[in-house]
Design a protein around this nucleic acid. Sequence first.
RNA 1: GGGCAAUUAGCUCAGCUGGUUAGAGCGCCACAUUGACAUUGUGGAGGUCACUGGUUCGAAUCCAGUAUUGCCCACCA
Length: 901
Amino acid sequence: MLSKAYDPKATEDRIYKMWEESGAFTANAKSEKESFTISMPPPNATGQLHLGHAVMLALQDIFARFQRMKGKEVLWVPGTDHAAIATESFVIKKLQKEKKMKDPRAQLGREALIGEIKDFVEASKSMIRGQVRKMGSSCDWSRERYTMDPTLNRCVNEVFVSMYRDGLIYRGHRIVNWDPKLQTTVSDDEIEYEERTEQFYTFKYGPFEISTSRPETKFGDKYVVMHPDDKRYTKYVHGQKMIVEWINGPIEATVIKDKAADPEFGTGVMTITPWHDHVDFELAERHKLEKQQIIGFDGKLLPIAGEFSGMSIEDARPKIVEKLKSKGLLVGIKEDYVHNVALSQRGKGMIEPQIKEQWFIDVNKRVVKWKRKELSLKEVMQEVVKSRLITIIPDRFEKTYFHWIDNLRDWCISRQIWWGHRIPVWYKDDRGTRDTHVGVQPPSGSGWEQDPDTLDTWFSSALWTWSTLIDPDLADEYALPLSELLLKSPDFLKFHPTDVMETGYDILFFWVARMILMTTYVTGSMPELEYGQVPFDTVYLHGLIRTRDGRKMSKSDPDTMIDPLDMIQKYGADALRLSMIVGQSPGNDSRLYEEKIAGYRNFVNKLWNASRFALMKCEEAKTDPSTITSLPHAKDLSLADRALLHALEVLIEDVTDGLAKYHLSEVGERIYAFVWEYFCDWYLELSKGTANVAVLVHVLRKILVLLHPYCPFVTEELWASVKASDAGMLLKNPWPNPKAERKDPEAFAQLQVLIDVITAIRRLRSEQGIEPGKEVSVTIFSKDHTALFDSQPEHIRRLGKVGSLTLSNKSEKLTNTAVAILSGAEVHLSLEGLIDVAAELKKLHAEHADLTRYLGSIEKKLQDKSFTDKAPPKVVEMEKKKMEETKEKLKKIDERLKSLS
RNA sequence: GGGCAAUUAGCUCAGCUGGUUAGAGCGCCACAUUGACAUUGUGGAGGUCACUGGUUCGAAUCCAGUAUUGCCCACCA
């Protein structure tokens, strides 16, 4: 016998273990079945899972379980990401804090620091494994991958070398986003802007006035730029030189005319600092101007600053302003200048643009093969979405995606950190010349030094969908090129392209776009793959989970954080999953709070108790539920049975259809409503007299099946008690096909009327205080006016095997009365004399007025030629029918009114 | 500056391509409840679908504009 309430803690771990040990999560590459593949976005191996992971795991698990039950060969690949910068800075901070190290990089050196990081990563990996299991994720642990696996490293090197040979990867001096705090480059996407109010200084610069918020960069400014059409400066010509007094004495300035100078801004004149500003850099490139470094990579001023050399920016700024002031060059200070300051996403340090030698991927060079065409990486990325090879849900993100690509610059892929895939390039200084080796494997011979930089973490995760499917045993066979590696891997052949990429919209650019870039590049030249494969067919983007009042949950504010593991502990994984899925639509943020989760815990418990009730009924009927294999013959089904079976068939249709379309929220709500309202509030109530256990068990089983993708634990647990003896575990149970012959809309409509009748009688009894045994007659209007119930025989017949009804004595439950109606017991009811005539009259008059108004609107509509001519005939028919029905209703009300008065 | 979206009940949100008199959960009010479910039931109140126009026989739904809010991208010396 089941316990009185569902206890997730006593169930979930046990059930998960059972699933895992059964091998049901393990995909078979040799299977004849159609495949369905999901690559799990690998969480960063830096510790705890948060709600973002929880929502992603819940969504993907629903996809996976649904498709598995539908009979597909499902592969869901789990894994973790090495998250280069995030992990390294996390571990460095940890070492500083826990081991009191000042500078762990310098103190430990490369090898030892990597060792520390590796240990940390291993620990968090096993933590994450446990947490992913807690969510109930049905992923294939035998295929777990990590973005730093040797196979992945091999793939990274292969792709790098190949792109290098194609001229897509190049090394160059470019202005990059330098993070002096973390001592590395960061990509454009890893920058955040913060609005700050700072002082804005205007200085005299020869005959001009120039303005800046950063005087400390101005030492090397020897170009003065103005718009070619600016009338104020027509007397100065491009290339004109002049001597101007500046911070550390006179310098030679050159006039540059360029449209980059906005005549509307300030004085319309500016000086430039090409080494430390993106725009200035481009301007300097255009005019082939000299570039000079002012600020060192440590964030301190270089010797060019003269007396300020070695000072940090913060210290130097006021002193420089002071000096310029004393020289009479300060024109003014604007105090409330608002502008955006670039900050590093990790560490929140100021970004100092610098010129550095870095590795880049060229996104504009048209050498990428795709479906026998030669395109640029940008063009391929656009092409696959335009041609619908990839669909993005919700589709508005396709616009965002295109917009991003339009503005995409070359991708800087090198990072000056130690944790990550090291760039597969080796150098050797040989009598003054420098040899370079770019290869998948290190060069032979001595004296070679590998490039110290590592690759952007997204470079390796961009290969995720297919690099995880390569047979690890083949990875060491360097004689095989990458294309052969893929074609010899059974998993790749069976499971790629993957079916759905489910992830947060916040990493559409970081990751999704880059997977498209890399996968199309790698497969585009392969005839075996029809000259190009996409990484996935569908991209499903979920939104962020926010707090109740719409704020972001952040680690710095622990009060706002909801820890998924706490919630699982408190309410169970099933309840948590429902609370994140139902009410969440793709691409939109949603809010989560404990009451919501508690609400779904109540639902899970309701289902549990409904099952308990069904089992109790089986016991009463001395029927072992496991022996129930079929439904009784149609003639032995009551009205309620037929109505419920009808509703179930409709539910199966809706759920199957909705899940295929990824309408998860809607489907969840649909099942929720069916279980609570139809199954529990209608059917179980009606079953309290005599129950048809076969129908009970049949419907309950179907509910468990349909709900399994959403609530895997509780459904599997209940399944054990109600399943047929020859059925296996629920997660492998076949998905039901809707059966049209079980549909019975007539019965469903009749039951609805009946429910209305019962409800009305209950109400009357409580409102009027009807004495037991007293005979009354009653007229009851159903909500939708489709049927009226009174003691007239024809209506009674409409309701099925109904004789008439009574309230015989006080102790008898109203629900029993309902059962009496259903089983056709011969009872008599007359509520005459107890009806509140005045109240009924009032109600009838109100209804009459409503209906008359409604009728008027329909009649008007039907007289309107433009309606009858233009509206589809079906609609006109419908309106006519509505008119007839309304007239009918009005007639009845009229009759009733007459009889009352 | 460029782009994307949102605005529906007290709160959180559905409402899929225009079609009966707009829905759910929570909350609120009243009543019931030894009952499968101290996690339940029944009923109720509560909405000019942000605003203004337009298209249409018909608009929460499509279009334009306005207001407010949020997000993304770029970034100005």
